[in-house]
Every structure is written in structure tokens, then in C-alpha cells.
Design a protein around this nucleic acid. Structure first.
Lengths: 204, 204
DNA sequence: CATCGACTATCAGTACTTTCATGATGGCAA
DNA sequence: TTGCCATCATGAAAGTACTGATAGTCGATG
């Protein structure tokens, strides 16, 4: 969860973090809410919920929705309602983004999380459960370095956190299966003394 | 943001995702809130906020806090208050840092703390762990001179505090990687007999 | 019993850190 | 101003820790 004190800061944070959902107040310092909505809409489909003070007219709400907000709540908001609306928004967004979230495909590497199937250059590749889980965790954190401990925790479990050789072995096996040239990896990169990083490739 | 429909599901999600903050209702299907609080507290320091229905006694609240909750709100909760409390909790847990401390970008030098990635003039530059850590510490103190000892302590550790040549070596390496002209540094400046200072540059 | 996957051990190669040697620079005292 | 010393910059060698690859053992499964 991220918090910003102004519209400008919020926008900067949005760029940096790409959250799943944005909740913002119409009245903010530095940049007003509607502007923020428009800016975000220019670059992303992220669900946006707008909150506003009491005295708003029907027109204000319509203006907000036109700007690209998905939901418009008038304060005071009951927590129950807030949660319900957030849940609904996320559920709706899931349908939109499920495709993006539920797999990866760049023409060479194709990962189908639903069917647990991996294709490399069109050919089916069989991954063992551990290999697959490792790949998923790395992909979920694409672009970011996943520290050894985090990998161990997420793939093998908390109690394996000291068995530092697990990732080595499995990354090695994964690379052999999915990398065009396992000796010069392009997908799974090593961050020496830190962890590993999955890097998305551009479709050819 | 993650949502769970029951205590059990929430606990499972918690294990899988390790969120920065947990908000839960005391009354939930499958596993009651206080149990969830205790379970989470067994394995993590994550800030927990508990919500409860109206008719609670002072004792209920105390019980919740003893179980390990950090905050206890009684419904209905005004959104303003909710946000304020969340912000306070996160600040206490030092998850939201005071200033946007998620990176730096001036068009020439780009540092992404989250991804642990540095770009110089658009090109990715690889920094070793120590180099990166040094850069981060300097950037966190941008504009201020960081004394040698402080650098040694923060980057290498308390026990290296007398090895005064470390910063020299690594500053030199860092400059070679990120400065437009390493011989005439603009980012990492030397403060003779004191330490080093990171100076933000104006975007071109 | 054969196969498969998880786990363990080993070892060479590599990346990174530490150390050292040398020359440059800055500040201060005479 | 000049010379001196402490500090700084840099390149490179030596040392260390980490990684990649491979292969073998074990247990589960069919």
C-alpha cells in the first residue's frame, strides 16, 4: 500500500509502482484529482476510485467519470461500502487484466499459468513442479530482483530459508529448458550476491 | 491490495504475499479475527489493524491489542480517520518513507531502488552490491556531506569503521560508472577531510 | 522394477571485495 | 609563494565468496 500527500506525488508514485488500484481525493494540493485521473488514464487502465467532499452536484460526478474514474464516492463513506466497492472494482479489473496476468508470451517463451504449460519456440517443454513454481515467482516479480531468501521462502517454504543452494540448482535447470542460450541467459538474470531477476523480452 | 473472504483465506494470502499492512474484521467465517492476529504475530511484525462491530467493550479492545493488533477501530469508521490511522501505522512501521525514496531520475542518471537498476544516459549499468549500497546511502543523504565513518558504518558495517580507504576505492569505481566525466565529478563530490556528498542534478 | 523429481555434494570458473602501490591534489605553515 | 604532508584517486593484484554445472543418492509413484 502506498500513500501520497499530493496529486503530483501520487502521480510520481503511480509511475514508479504501478499499483493495482488507485483511490484519490478530488481535492488535493499541487494537482487536482481530475487531472491526476486523466494523466493516469493516458497511460494505464488501472481502476481508479474518486472520493469527494459532501457538496458535489450530479454534474461533478459525471465530470469525474468522464475523466476516467471507475467509481465515485461521496464522503463520508462507510467502511463497509468502501470495501464492497473496492472488491467490485478489483473483480471487474481482474477480467480485463486476467489475460495479462495469467501468462507470458513474447513469441519465443510462452507460459500459460492456467494450464501450467510452457512452450519454448513453439515446442512444449515439461517443467517439474518446483521448476514451474520458481518460474512463476520470478515472473510475478518481473523486472525486480528477487532475493535468495525470498525465493526460498516463496518456492520452498520458510523452513528452507538457509538452504542457499536450492535456487542455484533450479535456476540452472530452468535456464537449460527455457533460455535460447543457457550460458548467456536473457530471461533469468543473476544479481550476484543478491538474487535473480526475470526480464521480459521484447516480442520479435 | 489483496482481499480475503475468510480468516483462513486471509492467513493463506498473508503467507503467500507478505503484505505491508493487514486490516481485518474481528468477525469472519472459518477463523476468527483474534486467532488470525495471533497467527500472524507468530511469524511477522506486520502492522495489523482490527475492525469490529459496534457493540464492543473496553475489554474486547484490550484483548485485541494483547493478541498483537496495532490499531483497533470500531465501526462505522469514517474514511478520513481510517486513512489517517493507516498512514500513521505505516509510518510507524517505516514502510512509507518520508520522502519519495523510490529512486532518482534527472534524465541522465536514473536509479530504480525497487528494481535495483541503474541507467546512465538510457543505458543499463551494472553495479556491484557494494557499489549500489554506497550509491543508495549517498542518495538518501543527497545534498548533505556524509562523513567517512558514517559511510563505512552504513555500507560496510560498524566493524570496518577504521578502514578509511574503502570509500575512496568504491567512490572511484562508482564515478567511473555513473559520472559523465569521472575526473570532474558532478554527482559524487569530495569534501576534503570530511566525506562525500551526492548532489542532485537538474534535468536537462 | 523403472522412472521421475527432489535433494545433496563437489569443483571449476567467475564476480566481487580487499589490499596495495603509485601518483595527484589540496590545505597549511613557514 | 613555496614546500610539505595528509589525504585522495586510480589501477591492478591477491584473496574470497558466490555461482553454474554436473552427477549421484534417495524416496515416491506407478
Amino acid at each position: 500500500m502506498l500513500l501520497a500527500g499530493s496529486g503530483l506525488e501520487g502521480l510520481r508514485l503511480f509511475h514508479a509502482e504501478r499499483p493495482d488500484l488507485v483511490v484519490l481525493d478530488i481535492i488535493m494540493p499541487e494537482m487536482d484529482g481530475l487531472t491526476v485521473v486523466r494523466r493516469i488514464r493516458e497511460i494505464a487502465e488501472t481502476p481508479i476510485m474518486v472520493l469527494s467532499a459532501q457538496a458535489v452536484t450530479e454534474d461533478d460526478i459525471i465530470e469525474g467519470l468522464i475523466a476516467g474514474a471507475d467509481e465515485y464516492l461521496v464522503k463520508p463513506v462507510r467502511l463497509n461500502e468502501f470495501v464492497a466497492r473496492v472488491r467490485a472494482l478489483l473483480r471487474r479489473a481482474q477480467i480485463v487484466s486476467s489475460e495479462a496476468d495469467y501468462g507470458y508470451d513474447d513469441g519465443y517463451l510462452n507460459v500459460d499459468l492456467h494450464r501450467r504449460q510452457v512452450r519454448v519456440n513453439g515446442e512444449k517443454k515439461h517443467l517439474t513442479p518446483t521448476e514451474f513454481k520458481l518460474l512463476v515467482v520470478l515472473m510475478e516479480n518481473a523486472g525486480r530482483v528477487v532475493p535468495q531468501r525470498e525465493l526460498l521462502e516463496q518456492v520452498w517454504g520458510r523452513e528452507y530459508i538457509d538452504d542457499i543452494y536450492y535456487p542455484r540448482v533450479y535456476v540452472s535447470q530452468l535456464r537449460r529448458k527455457i533460455e535460447p542460450d543457457p550460458a548467456n541467459p536473457t530471461y533469468i538474470l543473476t544479481e550476484h550476491r543478491v538474487g535473480y531477476r526475470f526480464e521480459k523480452q521484447n516480442a520479435p
